[in-house]
Design a binder for these strands. Structure first.
Lengths: 168, 168
DNA sequence: CCGAACTTTCAAAAGAATTTGAAATTATGT
DNA sequence: ACATAATTTCAAATTCTTTTGAAAGTTCGG
């Protein structure tokens, strides 16, 4: 396979993966492009490579920076901003886990906790079934929360993270 | 909090969680409704509760069945079909993991493997950077695949899972 | 085999998310 | 302070997804 073709395929594959993850396609494609680039790219280069508008580029690069997986690079003597992606894929993984936990798991945990206090007759089968379900889901969610925290913490912790890399 | 309000909140929360997961809102809401219901519901009851059309109900119930987290229940002497959700949330978790792995991770693993064979001069920095990235991502993806398989396998093994529950 | 009860399909409509591009804003060198 | 280069914003346009609902299909008791 030719390099140009391989590159296009990777960008496209990473893009659909992102789309299925609730990350938008363009954001994932910019990330893919930066992941395989040997050096930082400017907004213009990104626009050119992916055929997208300046506004779109700006918004999505910004979002990638918020997720903590892309950094702005300032080249001395240059007025333009350049962008580069975190190359350690484990760090990317934990950053994504952290971000998604914050956006998805944390809010539902909060709601589940509140819903534990539903009023109602314990003998009413609808109320009973509701209570049981909420309790089970809560436990599962808390377990998931704990697991994710371990994973996220692992990468922040130098020692454990080095250990993990032995297995990768 | 009143039961009716709590129920509405839960359905709405589960719906947005689903939406962020790439599962559509209605599918997640039907799932939520069935999760807390003490007994199986008919298509008409689902339509009524969630204010959605018959077609929408049918399509999304079907999809939930494909995911393996909702079952059709036939009541003797009744012509209608009734639907019920898997109540063990751990099983729901593994079903979702299995399904998403199949749709997301497996295809990217296949592509990554193919991309390892990119032609090109090892001294070209673009080719070198591409190769390195693909290799790192591949390793990470394989590790993730193995971890997910363990998780999925654990629940698929009926005997082991039953045993676990006895002792926990 | 008929007709009623129920389920499925799918083209069109509605709704949601993304993208564009030009104008506004901000930053930089002289 | 000015001119210019670069970035940011956001309303409108486009594109993608979901939902509707009516028609077609299926199943079942008699």
């Amino acid at each position: 396979m030719k390099f140009t073709e391989a590159k296009a395929q990777f960008i496209q594959a990473w893009g659909s993966l992102g789309a299925q993850w609730g990350i938008n396609r363009t954001m994932a494609q910019i990330h893919a492009l930066l992941l395989i680039a040997p050096e930082a790219l400017s907004a213009d280069e990104i626009m050119e490579e992916l055929n997208i508008s300046r506004g779109n580029t700006n918004m999505n690069v910004r979002e990638l920076i918020n997720w903590g997986i892309v950094d702005k690079v300032l080249v001395p003597g240059e007025r333009k901003e350049y962008f580069t992606a975190e190359k350690d894929i484990w760090k990317v993984g934990t950053a994504i886990a952290r971000e998604r936990k914050k956006r998805e798991l944390d809010p539902i945990l909060k709601i589940l906790t509140a819903l534990q206090n539903v009023e109602g007759d314990q003998k009413d089968k609808y109320v009973k079934s509701f209570r049981d379900s909420i309790q089970n889901i809560s436990r599962f969610a808390q377990q998931t929360d704990a697991t994710l925290n371990t994973f996220i913490k692992a990468e922040e912790n130098w020692f454990y993270s080095t250990l993990l890399k032995v297995f990768k």
